Amino acid sequence: MGKIYRQAVMAVIVNEESKVLIGYSPRDKSYKFPQGGLDEEEDLISGIVRELKEELNYNLLHDHILEVYNEKVRYPFPPDCHPLYMGQELSIVKIRHRQDADTIPQDDEFDELIWIHPKDLGSYNYEYRSDAYRQALSICGLI
């Protein structure tokens, strides 16, 4: 059997200034949105709640979910990056940030978190994720 796209979910967290949260990943040597693969039989909401808690100690409240989009974005992994997957196919969850919510890196996923204007997306290195992220922000109506 050939490689497939890993099913994943990404958070587009928007603050009161209409900025979105991205982070620098020392592991990937690039910026990215909070995101991650879905566990077997895990739904999108459970997946994004888990990922945000694992990566940022962020407790997502369901009433802060602005939208879960049907449209997905995908990006291929670099060659020989993963033994099972050729890339990720991401469902997008748009979230209204709570000012009292933690955004503290919890593992090697991120070492720096920043809020950026969506129009400034191109100013940061996302490696092979750039087109997918631009599509995601467009789907969210942010660019």
Rank of each mutant, 00 (worst) to 15 (best):
M1I: 09
M1P: 11
G2W: 11
K3I: 03
K3C: 02
I4H: 07
Y5G: 01
R6M: 14
A8Q: 07
A8R: 07
A8E: 11
V9W: 05
V9P: 01
V9F: 08
M10A: 12
M10S: 10
A11S: 14
V12A: 06
V14S: 06
V14Q: 11
N15A: 07
E16G: 09
E17R: 13
S18Y: 15
K19N: 14
V20K: 02
L21H: 03
L21S: 07
L21M: 10
I22D: 01
I22M: 01
I22F: 02
G23D: 01
S25Y: 10
S25D: 04
P26W: 02
P26R: 00
R27H: 12
R27S: 13
K29N: 12
K29S: 09
S30Q: 13
K32H: 03
P34H: 04
G36L: 14
G37N: 00
G37R: 02
G37W: 02
D39T: 01
E40K: 12
L44M: 08
I45V: 14
I45S: 10
S46P: 08
G47R: 07
G47N: 07
I48H: 01
V49P: 00
R50L: 06
L52V: 06
L52P: 04
L52M: 05
K53G: 00
E54V: 13
N57V: 01
Y58V: 00
Y58E: 00
L60P: 04
H62I: 14
D63G: 09
H64M: 09
H64T: 09
H64W: 11
I65A: 08
L66D: 14
V68P: 10
Y69E: 11
N70C: 01
E71M: 12
V73I: 15
Y75V: 02
Y75F: 15
P76N: 05
P76G: 06
P76K: 03
F77E: 10
D80R: 09
C81L: 08
H82T: 00
H82G: 11
H82L: 07
P83Q: 09
L84G: 00
Y85E: 07
Q88G: 09
E89R: 01
L90P: 03
L90C: 07
L90I: 01
L90D: 02
H97E: 15
H97V: 04
Q99W: 00
Q99R: 05
Q99P: 00
D100G: 02
A101E: 12
I104F: 10
P105T: 14
P105S: 11
Q106C: 10
Q106D: 13
Q106E: 15
D107W: 13
D108P: 10
L113Q: 09
W115F: 08
P118G: 05
P118V: 06
K119E: 12
L121H: 05
G122D: 02
G122S: 05
G122N: 04
S123C: 09
Y124V: 06
Y124S: 03
Y126A: 03
Y126C: 03
E127W: 01
R129P: 05
R129L: 11
R129Q: 10
Y133L: 15
Y133P: 14
Y133N: 15
R134S: 13
A136V: 10
A136G: 14
L137F: 04
I139S: 11
G141K: 01
L142C: 14
